[in-house]
Write a protein that binds this DNA or RNA. Structure first.
Lengths: 191, 191
DNA sequence: GGCTTTTCGGCACGGTGCGTGCCGATAAGC
DNA sequence: GCTTATCGGCACGCACCGTGCCGAAAAGCC
């Protein structure tokens, strides 16, 4: 039994993030606590507290590891099809472990912590809104959407409608919902 | 010191809901626990557990007491103005105590409890969506909106966009956001 | 290579809330 | 006036929080 030497520093940090995601996958939302991560990693709690001030901070970093940038929209020249594909692709990705449980845990903690709510928005949701905005602005410049309209809020509405279902209902956004959302968007701004 | 006789039965139940709302107003989200309610009401924990199986159940009933039915839309014949008025009116009502803290506490608990999430949706959000739908269907029948379109999803999108801001961002829906949302809705379905 | 410094795992602590069990007291129902 | 259900109070074991202290082990330095 060759004893693995104790890892330290950056290697430990990385391993802790990995263990956190594993734990989220196996135990789900309910099992996510600092004690549980320490136990699963065979680590003292100090080793975690030295790196992150709270469970929320740890979860934010863990989420960053898997919040892949493949949320980028394609640009086939058909804005409706590109939005549709991306929306439908993001639904299972957001709901499945490890993203789903970690995300839910953060949302829950953020309800009682205004600062965390702002951080969560800045690090994840704002990016989603911005990329959505970028894609529809490109469509606007290409003549697919009406010109002369500020699309910032419409981009937010598109994202908001999807997250509303994720977080507040038990129905995930399905094809029907996504199509209806895009119907509304295209009816408003399509040409 | 005329001792108030111990209240029992329905009177106690009512008082406990009142105390819960008071506690939410004074201590906010963080102070909401069964122990805290029992302490504030001068009551044994059993007295609460006998009535509600969990904090979430207690909060749901408490929320019902203040989730006033004044979320009803007016019907002045101008659907955009009626929606706008109602949206702007609901924003501070949802954010302020006691609704704000209680609602946040429920959202937080619902993240780890699928059943609660469904109950929360059924008892509150669905009503909001249905009343919104009813108002815009009336407008459709009155010829204010285009005919022959199913407005179920658009009603959900309207509500979803507002709740998205409430729960996931630090910016409450303001006049600009509501106007932009209504711009999109009217551009899509107005005549 | 030997020494110092930092990080490590392990353990224990007090604090808080959970959900339950057991009291003797008290109000309600008959 | 007597029975019965509910009451408040207290205690328990459990879990997690965030912190402190320990001796061991790795990393860094000369």
């Amino acid at each position: 039994m060759a004893e693995e030497p104790r890892r330290r520093g950056a290697a430990r940090t990385d391993e802790l993030l990995r263990v956190t995601l594993e734990l989220a996958t196996e135990s789900g939302y309910a099992g996510l606590s600092i004690e549980a991560v320490a136990r699963a990693a065979g680590v003292g709690k100090h080793t975690i507290y030295r790196r992150w001030p709270s469970m929320a901070a740890l979860l934010l970093d863990a989420l960053s590891r898997v919040w892949t940038t493949d949320l980028d929209y394609r640009d086939t020249g058909d804005v409706r099809a590109d939005l549709r594909e991306q929306f439908l692709r993001s639904v299972p990705a957001l709901a499945a472990p490890p993203i789903g449980p970690v995300y839910r845990a953060l949302i829950a903690e953020a309800q009682g912590d205004e600062t965390l709510r702002a951080t969560l928005y800045d690090r994840f949701l704002r990016t989603v809104e911005e990329r959505t905005l970028a894609r529809i602005v490109r469509a606007q410049l290409a003549g697919e959407l009406v010109a002369g309209v500020d699309l910032t809020f419409p981009a937010e509405v598109l994202c908001g409608a999807l997250y509303y279902r994720h977080l507040l209902s038990t129905r995930l956004p399905d094809e029907k919902a996504v199509d209806a959302l895009l119907d509304m968007f295209m009816a408003a701004y399509g040409r």
